[in-house]
Design a protein around this nucleic acid. Structure first.
Lengths: 344, 344
DNA sequence: CGTAAACATGTTTACGCAAACATTTCCTGG
DNA sequence: CCAGGAAATGTTTGCGTAAACATGTTTACG
């Protein structure tokens, strides 16, 4: 037994070690390490052999220090509870890997202004070349949040900022598609179980689009229900809706809410879609297996994530990227939870 | 307009810049930057003022180069589609942030051996001090996967490796709780809709525990159904189960599968739990709002994630961490989808 | 009032890498 | 057979930081 406790951490091999073993200069090792151009084949092979023997790995800290580039992007998220954020993160991760970038993930539990600014500054200090912010709380952005100007950043799922690069699925289009679909089925009007419109930009836009679509069609705008993203919140709203018998169509701000609404309707003995039509938003993986299978609005999360990374990548490369919001269209997915209006 | 296109990237302020402005040496700036011990108050304030004025941020690449530590851990995941992985990742992210670590995320779409080894080696090259692997495909681990030995790593959700540090929820315990709960309700036996037992360790353990629990109770072991984690796979199995009338209790390998099974039962006019009891696994956020609310086995994902990070953190600090598997207990959550056996 | 200890600050150095520049070797063509 | 040049390789240097060491300056106390 050695006298030292703990894992013995041997100093990893450096270029100098490899150079010594291969009998070349450190610079030659560097050249081999970066593609091997301008190095004679036998020399390269000797160096590669020495690298293998010593288990050489380039030290990316040193490389970053020298080059000022980290080949890494930071992703700042509010929470990982949200389907959409995760699917976008997934895409971003894959896209980034394909371009040789790594992802530095920071998630925030409590979305206070201070926390966000602190997290952004932490990212700024981290070794990242750019930042993607997946942020749904819009009112916070109006305040004291300071975006790092040292490196480029792209916003997803946030209020449109004319002076920032930003991408999002077209919430207004999607909500319009949902409401219009129900109106087209003959329903006199459409009730809405919203998300947290006070804190979520997406929730607010869906609510607004629901309202204006009804108004444009000359339909009454019923009382607004809901207020959270959870299926529990949907259930509570659903119980209230189930008390009335003048309700034939419900637009839920996401699929989870719709699940809760469906449960409340079932418990109250209301049939879907015979008595009531229900439509969701997101098209989560489970929506097709709800009872009944849920008509919903699909957001193309992969497209949003991919475009965000692509924009950031171009900005990192020094390309001029125009600020402003890019909208990705949504798609109505019709399943069995919506049907024609029937008089009772 | 300047002649150069693209964003003008100014060189960020270094310690030397701050030192010059504050009229001190770079070393004094360094001291202030690291807590300010051994620096007179007026000097410190002068330095802090200079830092603010120049927007100074310590360069973590240089810091890492000097110290050999990156204050960063890599997380390698198969996919972000899976509830459990995400909730663990969430916890890990928060824990890491609290300890001043950042998270370097790598997700793999196609879980082939080559991809994994390549990703691990990529992580190895990245600037991380340790690695957490959230991997559910167990047979892959038996092959050519090389774990970096330069830095410590912790496994989650994988086959128990005696020589590796690893954490997981106790799958066998959970499956046993589920099956026993149904037997205790008087059901003669329990059917199982499994996950992908060929590729997922968790699925295999749940299936095995289901089988042995039945055998120990002297009950017949019915034919195995399922084979995927999706609710679609659950739906297909559910349709098959609904064809028979000698089925009273179904244990689903996860909540999504249970959702699909519930749908199939509803479509076939079977009542839950009056005709058939259904139990899930995971306790996802939505399970309580299924129709009917789903009895399930809760995995304490936050505890698993937190323990994984804690173990890794200790290993990074050079502490001796014994290899082997740590099991986190599961908890049975009884809701309305399970009820007593009734003869027909 | 003198001296030693405590404190404050400055100087040197090395971390590992790669750009810039310097040198050597070898081949080509007249 | 040699000048000229291309290819291969080596040397120097600096990125920003912090440890180690050196120096200067105050304070405490006999």
């Amino acid at each position: 037994m050695t006298q030292s406790s703990g894992t013995e951490r041997v100093r990893p091999a450096s270029m100098a070690d490899v150079a010594l073993l291969a009998g070349v200069s450190a610079q030659t090792v560097s050249r081999v390490s970066n593609g091997g151009f301008g190095v004679a084949t036998p020399t390269r092979e000797r160096v590669l052999a020495a690298m293998t023997q010593l288990g050489y790995r380039p030290n990316s800290a040193a490389r970053a220090l020298k080059s000022g580039r980290f080949q890494s992007v930071g992703v700042l998220m509010f929470t990982l509870q949200n389907t959409g954020s995760i699917r976008m993160l997934d895409t971003i991760t894959v896209e980034a890997a394909a371009k040789g970038f790594s992802i530095d993930l920071i998630s925030i539990g409590d979305p206070s202004t201070g926390e966000i600014t602190e997290a952004l500054s932490r990212l700024d200090q981290e070794t990242v070349d750019g930042i993607i912010v997946i942020l749904e709380a819009h009112e916070l952005l109006e305040h004291a949040i300071t975006f790092p100007d040292r490196i480029p950043s792209v916003l997803i799922d946030s209020q449109s900022y004319d002076d920032r690069i930003s991408v999002n699925a077209d919430q207004r289009l999607g909500a319009g598609q949902a409401v219009q679909h129900l109106l087209d089925l003959g329903h006199p009007t459409v009730w809405h179980v919203s998300g947290p419109i006070a804190t979520s930009n997406a929730a607010a836009e869906r609510e607004e689009s629901w309202r204006t679509t009804l108004e444009r069609a000359g339909r009454p705008v019923p009382k607004l229900l809901g207020g959270g993203w959870s299926s529990r919140s949907g259930y509570r709203a659903g119980l209230e809706l189930a008390l009335r018998d003048d309700i034939s169509a419900i637009f839920c701000a996401n699929d989870q809410i719709a699940l809760g609404v469906l449960r409340a309707l079932h418990e109250s003995g209301r049939s879907v879609p015979a008595d009531v039509s229900v439509i969701g938003f997101d098209d989560t993986a489970e929506a097709a297996q709800y009872w009944p299978p849920l008509t919903t609005v699909r957001q193309d999360f992969p497209a949003v994530g991919a475009q965000a990374f692509s924009l950031l990548s171009r900005a990192i490369d020094g390309e001029e990227v125009a600020p402003g919001l890019r909208l990705v269209p949504t798609e109505l997915i019709v399943r069995e939870s919506t049907g024609p209006y029937r008089l009772r």
